[in-house]
Design a protein around this nucleic acid. Structure first.
Lengths: 250, 250
DNA sequence: AAGTGGTCTAGACCACTCC
DNA sequence: GAGTGGTCTAGACCACTTG
């Protein structure tokens, strides 16, 4: 083929804004994911088909797909094809729920919703979610238990614009992110967490069956969609008696 | 060339223990890093030289080098060459020190050593460091401050076998891992951290200028060398008044 | 100018899955 | 057997660094 046909800039171009072909391909494909053109679980066209469509070589498409796989956006299965990653229960848990037992073994919590409703964004909520002050937000308060024992008190704020009608009725699954993906086409691709140690407030102490001022691990998380928009602000207060937050730094 | 010459198994081999060529190349090169054949900062032979030496194509060597770069083992610089990654102050801090201010901005702590000496491993130390009970260990206790305010109380245990003569004399840098690399050829490639919220003990409270039982963020870390051996056990107790532990989950 | 890594292409064969 | 991704090779040219 002629190098750099179609509307993608060629490698040879010396224009300042030059980007490698495979990066452009990746960008284009990510756009399709964000736009919902391909949904979680969908089968993508084969490498050859994409290469033909975009006017690049198969190897270039491959490099883009490999990077997207590394980013957890795609799953490739030899002999079957390339699929849009499903952030199912499994993935959501292992990727975004870092609480383990004291030996580092993963735990699966159950959830019980205490409160759930619609309100207008306070300053802190508006800032963290990057929405207008007083914009409508959905608030959820819940307690998460591990083998029957309540260990996490959680406050969640969601922009109403992104999740209309979530504030009432609908059953809430244990892992909210699967609901975001399934019902709203929003994939959480990244989360920023800040951890601190704080004393238990009277309400939290009561819910977790602890004395007041008991040390709790506070996890302050902003979840970002694939396009970088904040979609959730969550504060989790964890009793780390028999649990811990486990991470690997590599 | 003839495919699969030299002592590397070919792609075509149907033997059960088959591994891709580039994985074998990677393994071989990682061995050289572990063995100290190449040291941090060293320039590796060019892709073509390595390819010729190992009897594989340049593309195969490239794939191995790319993976090692992704693993933070190498640094590639266009026009210069491929270098063994140096876990300098910069890297050690950003990679293994996750404390930030409350807005998530990185902080740089100073350190003051309280105690430092040689002892025999207690059961917990032996288990965590995977050494014999009663084997000699170096213990360091220090306080780390941020802009003059003491915020972290730290207990460190090191296997004496790996770090002889570290227990006295030698000046301790602020980031221990640069010393491990420079003086002992041990590169920390990975760390497992478990975080909990705990009340301040009387000693720690005194050192950090807090009241007793003040909530502290406890970071329990095992640091692993490139070959997977535990090389350090560290417990950091952090006052998270103006600080937080920040991570990105992606 | 020479040498390095970075990108792109083209084509071969292998391993896996499904029909 | 056909189609997919996975591996391996070979060769071209580009971008960057050094001398």
């Amino acid at each position: 083929m002629v190098r750099g046909m179609s509307n993608l800039a060629t490698q040879a171009s010396t224009i300042p804004g030059f980007r490698p072909l495979y990066k452009q391909v990746k960008e284009l494909l990510v756009e399709r994911l964000i736009g919902g053109f391909w949904k979680p679980g969908d089968l993508l066209p084969s490498e050859f088909q994409l290469a033909a469509e975009l006017g690049v070589s198969q190897g270039t498409v491959r490099k883009a797909l490999d990077e997207m796989t590394a980013d957890n956006l795609l799953v490739r299965r030899q002999g079957r094809g390339t699929f849009v990653a499903e952030h199912d229960q499994e993935h959501a848990l292992f990727h975004f729920f870092k609480m383990t037992d004291r030996e580092g073994q993963p735990l699966v919590p159950e959830s019980r919703v205490l409160r759930r409703g619609l309100g207008t964004a306070r300053k802190d909520e508006a800032a963290r979610l990057q929405i207008q002050a007083e914009a409508p937000v959905i608030r959820i308060t819940r307690v998460r238990s591990i083998s029957g024992k309540p260990v996490i008190f959680e406050r969640i704020a969601l922009p109403y614009q992104l999740f209309p009608e979530l504030h009432d009725g609908r059953e809430l699954p244990n892992t909210l992110y699967t609901l975001f993906a399934r019902d709203y086409g929003i994939t959480v691709g990244k989360a920023l967490e800040r951890l601190r140690a704080v004393p238990a407030s009277p309400e939290v102490a009561r819910q977790l069956d602890l004395e007041r001022d008991h040390p709790l691990l506070e996890i302050d998380r902003i979840a970002l969609a694939l396009d970088g928009r904040p979609v959730e602000w969550r504060i989790s207060l964890c009793h780390t008696g028999d649990t811990a937050y486990s991470v690997t730094l590599a």
